[in-house]
Amino acid sequence: MNANVATSRQALKVLIVEDTKTITNLLQVYLMGWGLEFFDAPNGVVGLSKARELKPDLIISDVQMPEMDGFSLCAAVRADSQLHATPFMMLTSLKDEASRQKGNLVGASAFLNKPVSVDDLRSKVRVMLNLPATNR
């Protein structure tokens, strides 16, 4: 579906699963101006429940969280027949190659290191949501 058509009907939904509210707020600021509707969850358990309820267009998740980490959340999303094709971006302060490989193995669409580069974040979100390049 063309993103312009989608935004004229309803905003594209982005679920941010992050245990640090400051980072959640910062991500929303970075992605403002694209007509996105944001939802948040403090951990993977709540995130999975919200994802099943909302059917978001994109999930952005921290890796290291209490109760259910981002790897487990991504694997659960990929195993869910209604969510399996949802773009899933992982954010982490883990810098090792094994973590990146684990993210790929569970089906992450993108893997960005913290602190997040605003340009990298916007570029990847634009591609994942099929937004025109004229958006910031």
Rank of each mutant, 00 (worst) to 15 (best):
V46Q: 13
M68N: 00
L73T: 07
M32F: 13
E67F: 02
L83W: 08
F39Q: 11
E67A: 03
A75P: 04
N43G: 13
V45E: 15
A51K: 05
Q64A: 09
G70V: 04
D62W: 02
G70Q: 06
V46F: 10
G70P: 13
L48D: 05
A79L: 03
E37T: 12
V45T: 15
A75N: 02
A79C: 03
D57A: 01
D69P: 02
L58H: 00
I59F: 03
A79N: 13
R78H: 07
L31K: 13
K55S: 12
G70I: 04
G33A: 12
P42W: 00
E67Y: 09
R78W: 05
G47C: 10
L48T: 07
F38N: 12
E53R: 09
L31W: 08
V63D: 02
W34I: 14
I59Q: 01
L58K: 00
Q28N: 15
S81N: 10
L31D: 12
Q64M: 15
V63M: 05
D57F: 00
I60R: 03
C74V: 08
V63C: 03
S61L: 09
D62R: 01
L54T: 01
Q64D: 09
L31F: 12
Q64C: 09
D40P: 15
P66S: 11
P42N: 01
I59G: 02
P56L: 01
P42R: 00
F71Y: 14
L83P: 04
A41V: 06
A79Q: 09
L58G: 00
Q82Y: 08
L48M: 07
D80K: 04
I60D: 05
M65T: 05
Y30A: 14
